[in-house]
């Protein structure tokens, strides 16, 4: 049994509830134990770095330190939490001055961090640690005939880590094929959804959402699958506003990759949070019983 320190992040407690439910349920079936980090704090999203870089690293370091105390690698389902935690880890390992300064602050919570753990995105745990063969073995109800647009978004891939291929990623598609779904070509899959601009430049954000929805529709996707709560909310919940702003008629369901995996693993739709959508996930109906 593989065990990880689980850092759900603020969005999964609220707006992304069904991502949390489906992450917990699918990992159980796959023999992965997620031990929720006790008393985790917000990673700062993108906004924190607007104000103070050092403070942003300190916030992430507190979570890393708590995971290190349990000698567990940290796993985040949210791409923003993942990116912030990953790069804080990297900077702390490479920069002793930064680590000193931050450890001085961590003392206030009786913590310290020495760079001993790894940070992973939940999708990486499925793809690399569990592995596609194992997943294929455990599939009970392949999602045959379901056309999925795999939306990577930004922070699961960017900034670039080591020598990973940030332009031609295929792991999302492979995961979808492993559960019997059909990944459709999705040329804009790496383009930003504009999530962080929703408040500061609404029109820019809505037009970015529109392009992504259009691209999924043009490629006959039944659903868009995401690996980030902010992408999900942005693409799904703002469809009415996109439609109003641009005179479009989008009704594209946007679900979490863990919800699709859960269905294929034979978990009931309700346990995966299916039914909480604003744009009903009707194409999933044949698979939800």
């Amino acid at each position: 049994m593989k065990e990880y320190a689980y850092f759900p992040g603020c969005s999964l407690e609220q707006i992304g509830l069904s991502y949390n439910q489906s992450s917990v349920e699918t990992t159980k079936v796959l023999g992965v134990e997620l031990k929720e980090l006790e008393d985790w704090n917000c990673c700062g999203a993108t906004t924190y770095f607007h104000v103070d870089e050092l403070l942003a690293y300190t916030l992430c370091a507190r979570n890393l330190a708590m995971a290190e105390k349990d000698s567990l690698d940290l796993v985040a389902p949210c791409s923003a939490c993942y990116k912030n935690s990953y790069f804080t880890n990297k900077h702390l390992r490479e920069d002793p001055d930064l680590a000193d300064h931050i450890n001085y602050a961590l003392e206030e919570d009786d913590l310290s961090y020495s760079g001993q753990i790894e940070v992973k995105h939940l999708m990486e745990v499925f793809y690399c640690d569990v592995g596609l063969d194992e997943i294929r073995d455990k599939v009970k109800k392949p999602l045959e005939g379901l056309k999925v647009a795999p939306y990577y978004g930004c922070q699961i891939l960017r900034p670039k880590k080591d020598d990973e291929d940030v332009e031609q990623a295929e792991f999302f598609e492979e995961l979808m094929s492993a559960i019997g779904a059909e990944p459709v070509p999705y040329p804009l899959k790496l383009k930003c959804c504009g999530g962080s601009l929703l408040i500061s430049n609404r029109i820019a954000a809505l037009s970015m959402v529109r392009n992504l929805l259009q691209n999924a529709e043009d490629n006959n996707a039944d659903v868009i699958a995401t690996a980030c709560p902010m992408c999900q909310v942005n693409l799904e919940c703002y469809q009415p506003q996109v439609n109003q702003e641009f005179g479009t008629k989008f009704q594209v369901p946007v679900v979490y990759f863990t919800q699709l995996m859960g269905l294929a693993l034979g978990i009931r739709g309700k346990k995966l949070g299916i039914g909480k959508e604003i744009v009903a996930a009707t194409p999933l109906e044949p698979y939800t019983t």
């Binding site: 930004c154 922070q155 601009l197 430049n201």
Partner: peptide
């Protein structure tokens, strides 16, 4: 810079 979405596409 206030309209930058922090998507890192330019960076990579």
């Amino acid at each position: 810079f206030w309209y930058c979405a922090s998507c890192y596409h330019c960076t990579v």
